[in-house]
Nucleic acid binder design. Structure first.
Lengths: 327, 327
DNA sequence: CTGAAAGCGCTTACAG
DNA sequence: CTGAAAGCGCTTACAG
């Protein structure tokens, strides 16, 4: 910057202004600065800028996984909205491990991000402590069960699962199994399970057909189906904690030559892109993953602007998409 | 830091050392510093550290897309390897748009990352210029066609596609179509197309059955199959630029009741997780996406350590995985 | 093993 | 509209 200032014959302060608030600099000076900067290939050092202004225009996102998940939508919504305002995304994956999450938050805090977007509202105690002590905007996403550290955006997994369970029951299925997600401690999945079981119970059906699985992917659907069938040979429908598992069930049905939805009804959770494509179409809960990201971005931006001291909690809801996998 | 120093009764310099190079501080002092830091909830400010040391321990990754792609593996390899060394990942998605890529590089350079990982080796001229001028380690990934800005890790898309094409021909298919990827200018996909067509040509088959599509996802497979069938009703095999499209073709075959591999052989590119799960199994090119990420991380780390002024170009190869979608 | 000085490249806050 | 001074919170390089 000093070089640019010298070449343009102005003070460094003026160079700074020409970049940050061009309107406060005369047109002639602005042009000289721009020419000098271009000639020297000057790229302002944001690290120095951040230190001086104690604002980083950097947001950290901490997600359990990127693979086959709705978090991609959230991340995209977040980064698209943020990029428009000149913010950048620091990303960490934790593999559903609270210890990893705590390590990630500690690591990231040293960079003084303006905001942190967390997945879920269950954290290692140190996360809550660190974040409360730090002066960052934090948004917890995908879970609406407080208490929250600061702000939150999500939807009710239990309500969504309850609605899905009722739909399955309403279609006349009577022996309905549930395939769980591997990480048993994650409340979002506990809520999904509870919602489904509540729907079965209120219809007077057996809520006990629940299969735990070890695999987050398609293979979990296959092994889950196997264990449900060993509990109940007359199983007539399966609800899965995620679409990926449901797709695994559909594939297994195809392999066995079982007609869906007649021999077995199948429903998933997430409405991933593939749900609309796989024959005969997968009935699923559509969550607004992208919307969660956009909303999180907006909460953080609004907080930056200084206004809003409040800590909103946003429920973005869900929607059930009915397709051929249920009769 | 000043607060910690005061509370521990030492100079700030000693606090700095206690954190960065604990071995250079006496045990007693180290403990006092640690206690003071814990009591105050002190988190070292890396922004200040970066400015003073002109090293950021931050790496920027610029990818076309996160959705349904092998870049996830690369990203995971990169971030896993980097995190072990205390580095963090700044992520940007460009949507296959060179202008977006240039904007991302410009934006990211201001943070003075220690390294930049780019996807492909085709860039807006300004990208090359900016990166050459800056003092960053850069690794171009997924493409082995130079000239490179600095280092590179990838494999030959043409060789992989040629091998896949030869396998299809070797299985006795005679009317083989190719479904292209939407972004026509991307060399990786041009190379895949060329490889397949070369295999057809050398077998004396018609290399002209190529369908362009508008959709990056499963739907592209469906529409691609439609247009190939309108060119050649006797089409007996389809090779797709990506597994996602190939899965789309398999789904469409299921919908039509066409037996795979007998009515139609299908092959993909990428060996995504789903390729092994979808019945009857998708024959595909397995690329080492994760390995590319790990290797990129290692090249950058080695460059940081000061050694290696060289600019290696690594070929990580590929492998063809044969499954039921080809007879 | 420990510390005082200088500086990294910006921005804030104050003058003019 | 423009500038000189001070400072952001660390690390480098030098002393002792």
């Amino acid at each position: 910057m000093a070089d640019v200032a010298r070449r343009a014959g102005v003070s460094p302060m003026t160079v700074s202004r020409a970049f940050k608030t061009p309107a406060t600099v005369s047109a002639a000076v602005r042009q000289r600065v721009e020419e000098a900067a271009a000639a020297l290939g000057y790229v302002p050092n944001l690290v120095a800028g951040n230190l001086a202004s104690s604002r980083s225009r950097m947001i950290a996102a901490v997600v359990p996984t990127l693979a086959n998940s709705n978090f991609l939508g959230t991340l995209k919504g977040l980064s698209d909205r943020l990029r428009q305002e000149g913010y950048q995304l620091l990303l960490t994956e934790t593999g559903y491990d609270p210890g990893e999450e705590a390590a990630a938050v500690a690591a990231v805090l040293g960079r003084r991000p303006d905001g942190i977007v967390l997945t879920g509202a269950q954290h290692h105690p140190s996360v809550t402590a660190m974040l409360r002590a730090a002066q960052v905007a934090v948004v917890e996403t995908w879970d609406l069960h407080g208490p929250f550290i600061d702000m939150a955006v999500g939807f009710s997994h239990r309500a969504a699962a309850l609605a899905l369970g009722r739909m399955v029951v309403g279609r006349g299925y009577r022996r309905v199994g549930y395939i769980d997600f591997p990480h048993a401690g994650v409340r979002r999945f506990q809520e999904r399970r509870r919602g489904v079981r509540a729907a079965l119970r209120e219809a007077g059906l057996d809520p006990g057909l629940v299969a735990g699985v070890a695999d987050e992917g398609y293979a979990g659907g296959r092994s889950g189906l196997d264990s449900l069938l060993s509990m109940a040979g007359d199983l007539d429908a399966v609800i899965c904690a995620t679409d990926v598992q449901a797709i695994g069930v559909l594939f297994e049905c195809a392999r066995r030559g079982w007609p869906v939805p007649d021999r077995l009804g199948v429903a998933g959770f997430g409405d991933y892109e593939i749900a609309a494509e796989v024959p005969p179409g997968l009935t699923s809960v559509r969550t607004n993953g992208r919307g969660i990201g956009v909303a999180a971005a907006e909460l953080i931006l609004r907080r930056q602007e200084g206004g809003m001291a409040a800590a909103p909690v946003l429920d973005l809801g869900f929607e059930i998409v009915s397709r051929g996998s249920l009769r």
